[in-house]
Nucleic acid binder design. Structure first.
Lengths: 188, 188
DNA sequence: AATAGTTAATTGGTCTGACCACTCTTATGA
DNA sequence: TCATAAGAGTGGTCAGACCAATTAACTATT
């Protein structure tokens, strides 16, 4: 018995296909709900189920009277919502923290910074107008960018977003300077 | 003008309320779609839009003919979907391989295997009926499971799936035995 | 010709009701 | 007693209608 594929799943696949094969990029307008339903030979309500779902994920944005648009992936909505459901499950939180640290440790070890980049990072740490969360975020974004792997950055960012909404772990200021010191030792 | 609150958002709130105030827990059966629509004075189609959305997030599970049930929150589904959108933009093979190796190296270093698990892994390597891809896959799945982090496993699995479709890098047999040897050194 | 105002077309938002497919309960009959 | 059938409940899908908001096209006035 093969698992029946729900129609709204097909619609999801179709939209992914549009992005992959037809080269849709963030900001582009997707076909209208009515057109998609014709295109996929399904009811409009089924199309809407799919669209509402990925809207909640922050992948698309809909404006009444205008249309449906691809967003520059913002995970926040989904993250917030998931967090509100998941918050009490500490098990997930631990896994998330661990996974995030795996990536952070990796990038701290393997990134090769220019003098300029290093100075830029220190500047972030010194900036008094930034909150701890912002510092943490920018600190690692700079490292990840130096590391030159967009994919790792994206994955880390995703985890960071989740983490932000679930946990309030504060890294002591010293953590970052230790990280840099460790980095300096590495390059010798 | 204040942002209109979409009906399916209200439904989301209602379900959160059920969980928070009425004490619904994973495994519980939610009210039926029809009952929810009466309860909230909305159309069933609107209820469905909300349910489909949080189904995609992995918060609920629906079984035709039975009903809708709260799941033991698996965020991984959402992660998977988000990642699949993110990955389409960064389809750089090198990045993917590097990211995958970060996870693999981590798990090789930090997993703590029982004698039993170690034997199980060696058995996989000896099994002549398995292709190289299958060996690689099972080898690391066992390590990840020993490492006890479902999230990392899911992320790795995702990268592995993508990798399978893009690349045919073959790991020499020796790679795995070296990995085990290195693991043995670590635990001393 | 330029501009303001009106109208029509398009698109998302919501609702109603119907029918199918599947599961479980209950009643029926051998 | 137990297998079978019928019914009720539930999710899955469809079709069509109307509302609400935006955009584009058209018209009339200046």
């Amino acid at each position: 018995m093969s698992e029946r594929i729900k129609v709204y799943q097909q619609v999801l696949n179709e939209i992914q296909r549009l992005i992959k094969e037809d080269g849709y990029i963030p900001g582009d307008k997707l076909p209208s709900e009515r057109q998609l339903s014709v295109q996929l030979n399904t009811a409009r309500s089924s199309v809407r189920e799919a669209l509402r779902a990925i809207e909640l994920l922050g992948i698309i944005e809909t404006r009444q009277g205008e249309g449906t648009y691809l967003r520059d992936y913002q995970t926040y909505q989904a993250v917030q919502l998931l967090a509100s459901f998941v918050l009490q499950n500490t098990h997930v939180l631990e896994e998330l923290q661990q996974a995030k640290q795996v990536l952070e440790n990796h990038v701290l070890q393997s990134a090769r910074l220019t003098e300029e980049q290093l100075e830029q990072i220190k500047e972030v740490l010194r900036d008094p107008s930034l909150s701890n969360e912002e510092k943490h975020h920018r600190f690692f974004v700079l490292f990840f960018e130096a590391n030159n792997n967009q994919l790792l950055l994206q994955v880390w960012r995703l985890m960071q977003d989740f983490s932000d909404n679930m946990d309030q772990t504060i890294y002591p200021e010293q953590y970052y300077y230790d990280a840099i010191k460790k980095y300096n030792e590495t390059i010798e």
